[in-house]
Amino acid sequence: MGKIGLDNVKLNYNDNGTVYNALDGLTFDVKEGEFVSLIGSSGCGKSTALSVLSGLRDPDSGTLLIDGQPTTGTGKNRGVVFQHYSLFPWMTVIKNVEYGIRQVFPDKPKKERLTEAKKYLEKVGLADFVSKYPFQLSGGMQQRAAIARTLAMKPEILLMDEPFGAIDAKNRVVLQDLLLQILEESDEKKTVIFVTHDVDEAILLSDRILFMDQKKISKEIAVNFPRPRNREELIDKEAYRTLRKRVVNLFYYESDEKSDVEGGEGI
C-alpha cells in the first residue's frame, strides 16, 4: 500500500459550456519516503494532477488515496509549493512561516512558533531576510521562503508544482541542491511529488519519473542513482546520459502511444 496515490481519476474542465478533458483515468501510487517527478509537455495534465493530489480539486470520478484511505479536500498531511505566489504579500517572510505553523499547531505559543519559523528560514538561507515583505525579495528567495513555510508545517507529503519553473537557470540549480540537501536530513524525510518539465531536474531529484501524456501516465522510469546525490558527479556518468536521452526522447515520441522508446534509439 502506498502513501499517496490516484486510482482511475477522471476530471473535466467546464469552460463556458465547452467541456475539456483534463485527466483521463490517471492511476499511480507513491510509496512512503519516495520522491516522484511528474513530467510531460505543457497541457498534459500534470499540474491538474497535482491539484487533485493537494485537494484543491476533487475528481469527477476515481479516488485520491492517502494511506489507503479515500480522501477529498485539502489536508494538513499535505504541503504544497506553487510556482508563484505561495506567500501572502501582506505578511513579512517570518510572519508567513509563523502563520503556516499556526494553522497546524494552533496551541503552540507564539514565541515558539516564531523560533520555529526562524529555524526553517535559516535552513533555506534566509536568516537575514526574515522581516522583509515578499515584494522585497527575488523570485528565488520567495520560493525559499515558500519552501520554509511548507516544511515548517511538517506535512508528511510534499507536493511541488514547478516550484523552480520561473527562476533563472543559475538560481534554479542552487535551489535544486538546497532541496536535495534538506530532504536528505533525517527529520525532514518526506514523500514528495514534484511536477516539472525540466528533465535534468527530474533525474537529479527523483527516485522515479512518471511521464504524462494524453492526460494519463504513459511511461514510468526508475532513477536508481544512489543518494546523497551530487550534481557534478552525476552528470559525468554514462548512465546519467543514457537515462537523460531516454527521458528526452519521451517528449518527441509522446503522441505515438505504441512506440517503445526505451534505450532512446531513433534520434
Binding site: S51, S54, G79, F88, Q103
Partner: peptide
Amino acid sequence: DRKIMDSARTLNIQ
C-alpha cells in the same frame, strides 16, 4: 487572486 486563494486553501485556514 486564485493563486492566493489556492495557497490559503492548502494551508487549511479556518
